[in-house]
Design a protein around this nucleic acid. Structure first.
Lengths: 228, 228
DNA sequence: TTATATTTGAAAGTTTTACTATTAATTTGC
DNA sequence: GCAAATTAATAGTAAAACTTTCAAATATAA
């Protein structure tokens, strides 16, 4: 995986940036350090001025790459979901059994991101924390419908629909495949959050994983026996 | 319900306000119109200055009731969850069968709020939209652990734990009662959001309700047959 | 290699937000 | 009817969220 991924460029909607941050050294530093800064101080406290300082550059230079910090967040989360989509497609590619495939997909989508990471300047472990803590804020806005029309959430939607298809391959008569798929994706982020901050609201811990919980759920809801 | 509720004062953590907004006419106008304004313009665009203008009062007067808009949001969402808790306790009080009780609880917690509403100055339908769109923002912050220690999320936690207990009454050996309870509460907000903004990611619609989806899920996960 | 174009950095300016402080007017409680 | 409390109005501050200008550095093309 390591080698393969380092060759591949994760693509996100090009309306999310003014200038492709992957195209320059400054751009890559913006991405790299925005991830670290947002993780450290939270999205609300994060500003382009602070980021400019952090990378020994300038606020105005950051504004040449991204219109505002909201677009930057959309860029980062889109990148994350595109990366997950790549993993999903790759790791389920040769599985023929629909149930085994679905279970593999769920494991890929709900597992904790580990730090054997992969792509040069992006720390995927830190980015995954940002997704847990900030992803909701990217769509819980008054602009969501307009931005959705522009395709800003397309990668994430594609992922949900891929999972939905795998659910239907296993049980074509299951009545809520989209809802179940979206619950798994959003719900696993939520369970990771609860584990860190509201541990009394989840069984998830160091030993019990969101994957275990959701796998159990899906096996029962789709009336399967474990064959992963 | 109407009559009963109008007698009862919903109580929230008193550290959330500087002066009890239920104690004065101005306070009640602040609550009433903050709900309408946040719904209209979204939490990010909402300010105390705009609210002051809206109620023919002043920014500085609003600040005498609430430290900042984050505390106001915590107040509003706590109020909502306390109201839901009241409904939950009331409507499950005399049900003896554990399974029927759980199903009733789920229905109360995941149903759409209807406009036969109840408490004088608070529009519960609009407030429920705010909860769908803004509740996550109240805890996805860097201050969450400190605020949790202060009990700012206590009402919501209590609700999750009540649901958890009902799940365990039905299936004491179900391994993920807290996670399932938190998934139902958070997940139903999410399904309402998807229905409005990302309809391709959910089956929920005018005819299919989040209640239907989650009821089906819980019946299967807990291996029950429908007896609600 | 020099001229030209592009990118970046530094600084200053604008508007809005998120407050705080002061004081005057109004309301309320006794 | 007077004192105390509350509210409204105004002004002020610091920081956020940008925009503009310009000069310096760097890349590129002739």
């Amino acid at each position: 995986m390591k080698h393969l991924l380092s060759q591949i460029k994760i693509e996100v909607n090009d309306k999310l940036y003014l200038k492709d941050p992957e195209s320059t050294d400054l751009g890559r530093r913006i991405i790299q350090h925005s991830i670290l800064l947002i993780d450290r101080m939270g999205f609300e406290q994060f500003t382009f001025k602070k980021l400019g300082k952090e990378i020994n550059s300038n606020e105005s230079s950051v504004y040449r790459y991204f219109e505002n910090k909201h677009k930057l967040l959309l860029y980062l989360t889109s990148w994350y979901w595109a990366w997950k989509e790549y993993q999903l497609v790759f790791s389920t590619a040769n599985i023929v059994d629909a149930s085994a495939k679905l279970q593999k997909a769920m494991q890929v989508l709900t597992r904790q991101v580990e730090k054997d990471a992969v792509i040069s300047h992006i720390d995927e472990v830190v980015l995954s924390r940002i997704v847990v803590n900030e992803f909701s804020k990217s769509y819980l806005t008054k602009e969501v419908d307009r931005e959705n029309k522009e395709g800003f959430f397309a990668v994430h939607h594609r992922l949900v629909l891929r999972l939905r298809e795998m659910i239907l391959e296993v049980r074509s008569d299951y009545p809520y495949p989209s809802s179940l798929a979206s619950t798994i994706l959003e719900g696993s982020l939520h369970q990771f959050f609860l584990k860190e901050h509201f541990p009394s609201l989840t069984e998830c811990s160091e030993t019990i994983l969101p994957s275990d919980y959701f796998t159990h759920m899906v096996l029962n809801v789709l009336n399967l026996k474990n064959n992963g």
